[in-house]
Design a protein around this nucleic acid. Structure first.
Length: 824
RNA sequence: GCUCGUGUGGCGGAACAGGCAGACGCAACGGACUUAAAAUCCGUCGGAGUAAAAUCCGUACCGGUUCAAGUCCGGUCACGAGCACCA
């Protein structure tokens, strides 16, 4: 029977019956936790991206298993989320129904892929036995002060009548309906990820992650070293006081304290509280008008850096602590309320934005840094080098030293200090959505916010809910859900109507897999410390600054709560590339360039498909799909099958110590192949692994044609080839293994080791270069030293011709590679 | 605008750690087998050049370091990604 999808089914059935891939934590071998990012059960079928991610990571995990590791390889579903809800709004099919149906389909397809997932450890985030612990985690974070509520600006889609997550805002527009996003103030739940900003940064270097991903996280966290400096304020001629009656300090964050003597005005974010505080009666109308104007501005406008600066004078003044000057305080939306203190000191001479603003509104511009003493650089001069001028006692000081000098001086007055800021914001996790984990909080009119007691978890997501969007949380309209008793005082109370961002669900799922049936706790601490962290994590790079950051934060928070004792959830990370359509564009239905795996798999079998995915692309790069490339794999698989036919009746053994010249040549290729495939598969270089196996097949063909075949050795070679190929083509190789009379299963075979001595050749061919260009080639003993190689080369008759009268200045020999003669 | 990444034949892609560029495969071309086709097997396959060789050019472009550069350094261009008034 030649290879087909029937063979797939045969072995899938056998694997399942015999429990070949059941994970046993007590089995011998080092634990290895291999995980792919779980999938969102949106469509009915697995798409090519799933195949590319899952089938090849499965090959890697099979390889590790054969190497003797005790591999834990679970799979589950990120089952809550917007697409199912949107689909429900469109079709009326309840998200729970469509999701469960999709999960069933995907499970079946994943099994048909022939992956080693142990389904006993499956999880789906939409099931109460999972989201119960999501709620439990939320309450723990709340108790630790890491979950809190505050009023914030959120993204609002006026057409869909709902809040959108940041990631659902594409270039300022709603991903679904393309309308412009508005900003709206709402009271929301946040996770205090910023408390871990520094540690999230500090742990990055030790992670075996793609450098680019680490860079994205570094930028996203955005550490910025600077200083905070303060001004006293004057409103309507009087000094402003704080709530204690002390003089009010207006504090700003700056990275350029050296330019402090050049401050000519101060800017506050218009939506900040301090702005209202500073606005004088005379300016009130103008400021209010401006606030309304900025609130209306769309994200599109805000994002534009070419947008003209706008702003309004608040009427108040800041007093410069060093020179006593009164500088005006303005409000402008080029200052971001959420970053730093939401207040900026403006130095138009040395900042482009301040310069533009000052020019437009006629504010003073004072040069305080010059590239060299007395230089009249063009303004704004923003280079971070130079010396101070027009700065009184600080004149002549180099700018970096001046930062310290000025901050130190301010510190003695209690008006300044060094400060580190981060761009990272706390994680807004509330969603005015139906299909997610209900936030387990109760709002009591007398007790305030009260967590649901642990014994009452999970707070079940009700089934019968009107989830069509109208601007209110769908759960808010479900009285049976909303009405409850306060756990503290027993009075009538309301539940929180929001659900959690689905990134919460996925921020700890890797920790639930090993203990997915635990109903008494989120997971067993000892077990999780043994099983985690994940040793190899594979998924798309699009999660670099979201999921991959959230998970790291939750892991650290859990550690600090004593739930586990490691610092990082994913030790080693690989991103697969993206497979494009045959035309080189991203696959999309509208382009009509999609490739449906099912059609190919049913026609060619899973293993042909898997091998093509392995061979046709650099794994981390991806690339365009090609049907003819797939045909090449059919040929390859057929060649392997014919080799298996050739050896299936061979019973001879062979004596490894008495190999002929031809045997030795083949043995060299065999051992080289073992070495290369082992090395390349380990580092996700699947394409070159397959290439090496193709070379081995070519060498076997030559060997067979030589007419001088050692049957036992041939059998050994083909058997080894089958084992090497097994991770890539599990069904096919299992079938061949059976056919040639070997026992079940090929996956219980040990991974072959290579014989270093077989890789040593007696003589090797090296290239002889003259001045770096290859001139001719010569055979030398492989162990020859430089002196003897020089002698061999110099006695070669071709050398004189090549030198053409030049004399040898220098002779360089790179062992086993080449000789280079410098000639003049 | 800033930051990062990538650029190799007709195509997908190789190239340890600076050491014979183009592995392996696809497509193409020539041949064997065949009545024929498919399948299989053998051979050619970066460009210029030649009867064939020799030889020269060639890893986006310009320059540098080195005995030797796809690889390292400086600059330019193109494409892609991330961030985006972060003070």
């Amino acid at each position: 029977m030649s290879y087909s999808v029937e063979i797939d089914r045969k072995w899938q059935k056998k694997w399942e019956e015999t429990g070949l891939y059941k994970f046993d934590p007590n089995k011998k071998g080092d634990k290895l936790y291999c995980l792919e990012m779980f999938s969102y059960p949106s469509g009915a079928n697995l798409h090519l991206g799933h195949w590319y991610n899952y089938s090849l990571t499965d090959s890697w995990s099979r390889f590790k298993r054969m190497q003797g590791f005790n591999v834990f390889h679970p799979m589950g579903f990120d089952a809550f989320g917007l697409p199912a809800e949107n689909y429900a709004i469109k079709t009326g099919i309840h998200p729970q129904d469509s999701t469960l149906k999709n999960i069933a389909t995907m499970e079946k397809q994943l099994k048909e892929m022939g992956a080693t997932f142990d389904w006993d450890y499956e999880l789906a985030t939409c099931m109460p036995d999972y989201y119960k612990w999501n709620q439990w985690l939320f309450i723990k974070l709340f108790e630790k002060g890491l979950a809190y509520r505050k009023n914030a600006l959120v993204n609002w889609c006026p057409k869909c009548q709902t809040v959108l997550a940041n990631e659902q805002v594409i270039d300022g527009k709603c991903e679904r309906c393309d309308s412009e996003i508005e900003r709206k103030n709402m009271t929301q739940w946040f996770f205090a990820i910023t408390k871990y900003a520094q540690e999230l940064l500090d742990c990055l270097p030790q992670l075996d992650w793609p450098e680019k991903t680490k860079k994205i996280q570094t930028n996203w966290i955005g550490r910025s070293e600077g200083s905070e400096v303060s001004f006293f304020c004057e409103k309507d001629g009087e000094q402003l006081k704080d709530e204690n009656g002390d003089p009010l300090k207006l504090t700003v964050f700056t990275t350029r304290a050296d330019t402090f003597m050049g401050v000519t005005y101060v800017v506050v974010a218009p939506e900040s509280e301090i702005c209202t505080r500073l606005t004088t009666e005379a300016q009130k109308e103008a400021v209010e008008e401006y606030k309304a104007f900025t609130a209306k501005a769309s994200d599109i406008d805000r994002m534009s850096t070419t947008r003209e600066k706008t702003g309004v004078f608040t009427g108040s003044y800041a007093i410069h602590p060093l020179n006593g000057k009164k500088v005006p305080i303005w409000a402008s939306d080029y200052v971001i309320a959420g970053y730093g203190t939401g207040v900026v000191m403006a130095v138009p001479a040395h900042d482009e934005r301040d310069f533009e603003f000052a020019t437009k509104f006629g504010l003073d511009i004072i040069r305080v840094v010059a590239s060299s003493e007395g230089a009249e650089d063009e303004l704004p001069y923003c280079e971070k080098k130079g010396v101070l001028v027009n700065s009184g006692e600080f004149d002549g000081i180099e700018m970096h030293k001046a930062i310290d000098a000025i901050v130190n001086k301010l510190a003695t007055m209690d008006m300044g200090s060094k400060k580190v800021n981060y761009r990272l914001r706390d994680w807004l996790i509330s969603r005015q959505r139906y299909w997610g984990t209900p936030i387990p909080m109760i709002h009591c009119p007398s007790c305030g916010i009260v967590p649901v007691p642990e014994k009452d978890l999970p707070v079940l997501l009700p089934y019968d809910v009107e989830f069509k969007p109208d601007g209110e949380s769908p759960l808010a309209k479900c009285d049976s859900f909303m009405n409850c008793k306060c756990p503290k005082c027993g009075a009538d109370a309301k539940r929180d109507p929001d659900t959690m961002d689905t990134f919460v669900d996925s921020s700890w799922y890797e920790l639930r897999y090993p203990d997915n049936k635990n109903s008494g706790e989120i997971f067993n601490k000892d077990l999780i410390n043994k099983m985690c962290p994940v040793d190899k994590y594979v998924g798309g790079p699009e999660h670099a600054a979201m999921h991959l950051l959230y998970s790291r934060f939750i892991c650290k928070a859990m550690r600090d709560m004593g739930l586990l004792n490691f610092d990082e959830p994913f030790k080693s990370l690989v991103h697969q590339g993206i497979i494009l359509g045959p035309d080189g564009n991203r696959m999309s239905k509208s382009r009509g360039n999609t490739v449906a795996p099912d059609e190919y798999v049913s026609k060619y079998g899973s293993d042909v498909f898997r091998t093509y995915l392995a061979f046709g692309f650099a794994y981390t790069e991806g690339g365009p799909w090609s049907d003819t490339g797939l045909q090449a794999i059919v040929k390859f698989v057929n060649r392997v099958e014919r080799l298996a036919d050739d050896i299936k009746d061979i019973k001879d053994s062979y004596d490894p110590s008495s190999l002929s010249k031809d045997d030795k040549d083949l043995n060299y290729v065999l051992n080289y192949t073992i070495k290369a495939v082992t090395y390349d598969t380990d580092r996700f270089q699947f394409n070159t692994s397959i290439a090496r196996m193709m070379e081995l097949i070519n060498a076997i063909s030559k060997y067979q044609q030589s007419g001088n075949v050692n049957k036992g050795f041939l059998r050994h070679t083909v058997e080894t080839l089958l084992i090497l190929y097994a991770p890539y083509a599990p069904h096919f190789t299992e079938e061949q293994w059976e056919k040639i009379g070997n026992g079940y299963s090929i996956f219980n075979q040990e991974w072959p080791s290579f014989d270093e001595s077989a890789l040593v050749k007696d003589t090797i061919e090296i290239a002889v270069q003259i001045n770096g260009r290859v001139s001719f080639k010569v055979d030398i003993p492989s162990e020859a030293d430089q002196a003897s190689v020089e002698e061999i080369v110099k006695s070669d008759p071709r050398l004189n011709d090549a030198l053409a009268g030049r004399s040898i200045v220098k002779f360089i020999y790179v062992k086993g590679r080449l000789a280079n003669i410098v000639a003049k």
